[in-house]
């Protein structure tokens, strides 16, 4: 593993009475890909928001390039925002429903790339829309007029316009049909191939994690119970909980073999 870009030290946070994070330490190296799995409510989203500097942990710290994230102000904060981007859960809500595609993709640059002129920003925005595989007509459309997969691509394009070093993805596959999920994961792989990019993918699906991450962290009740390379996780998980979810996943894989789509009128099993 190369030098650490983004480091979390002993993050703890409580939401009212409930413990959301109970001392999580994590380091993400350049160009690394990490997947965080766990059931809903285990603190995955809170962890990502803390990493992105959107929530402040009660104790512990997040360090980016040697500086504690919550202390950042002004130019340094801008630098951090350009370096670490979070793609939020629930694409339908993460896009302002009254803005068209172009304005949405341009928004990060409007805020963080004041060095570019309006025309340049437009050009970059269009290039990224094309890069994530969206038709040019999306620039004029409102989020409500896009499909779920298109909205997810839009979110990716939006984050990528800043050319971040770390991309944090919070359940990017939720609510999407399996083929679309596959497309999104493939797109993510392509983006990583294009440029140096570290990704942290939060998901509850082991399949997605295996598809596009080298390391895996298993979270339960606000703590990371296991942090492994993907290969050793699949060959022999250490923690009891990890064994449980792996066994559950394998059982599902055995029962439902994803095949070609069933044609209507054909036999069902």
């Amino acid at each position: 593993m190369s030098e650490a870009l983004l480091v979390a030290r002993e993050l703890a946070k409580r939401h009212r009475a409930a413990c959301a994070l109970g001392g999580v330490s994590l380091s993400i190296g350049a160009e690394e890909s990490l997947a965080i799995v766990g059931e809903s409510g285990c603190g995955k989203s809170t962890l990502l928001r803390c990493l992105a500097g959107l929530e402040r942990p009660d104790t512990g710290s997040v360090v980016f390039e040697g500086v504690v994230v919550w202390r950042l102000r002004g130019e340094q904060r801008k630098r951090f925002c350009r370096g670490v981007q979070l793609v939020l859960q629930d694409a339908a809500r993460a896009l302002n429903p009254w803005w068209n595609g172009l304005a949405l993709v341009r928004e990060p640059m409007d805020l963080l790339r004041s060095d570019l002129s309006r025309q340049e920003r437009d050009v970059v925005a269009r290039r990224w829309l094309e890069r994530v595989g969206l038709p040019a007509s999306v620039t004029e459309r409102l989020p409500g007029e896009l499909s779920g997969g298109q909205r997810q691509r839009l979110l990716l394009a939006r984050a990528m316009t800043l050319e971040p070093a770390v991309l944090l993805l919070d359940e990017p596959l939720a609510g999407l049909d399996p083929p679309i999920q596959r497309d999104i994961l493939d797109l993510l792989q392509e983006l990583r191939r294009d440029r140096p990019l570290a990704t942290v993918l939060v998901t509850h699906s082991l399949g997605a994690a295996a598809h596009c991450a080298e390391r895996i962290a298993v979270m339960r009740s606000g703590v990371i119970v296991e942090l492994q390379s993907m290969d050793s996780f699949f060959s022999g998980p250490q923690h009891l909980y990890s064994q449980e979810i792996l066994a559950g996943w394998q059982a599902r894989q055995a029962n439902f073999v994803p095949g070609p789509p069933i044609k209507s009128g054909g036999p069902t099993h």
Partner: peptide, 24 residues
């Protein structure tokens, strides 16, 4: 809303949020 959270992720301050996302 998610889009306000997202804008904060782009480093938006309260003035920007008010002007661009909340006032409309």
């Amino acid at each position: 809303e998610g889009y306000v959270m997202a804008a904060r992720g782009f480093g938006a301050g309260p003035i920007y949020l008010l002007r661009k996302h909340i006032f409309p």
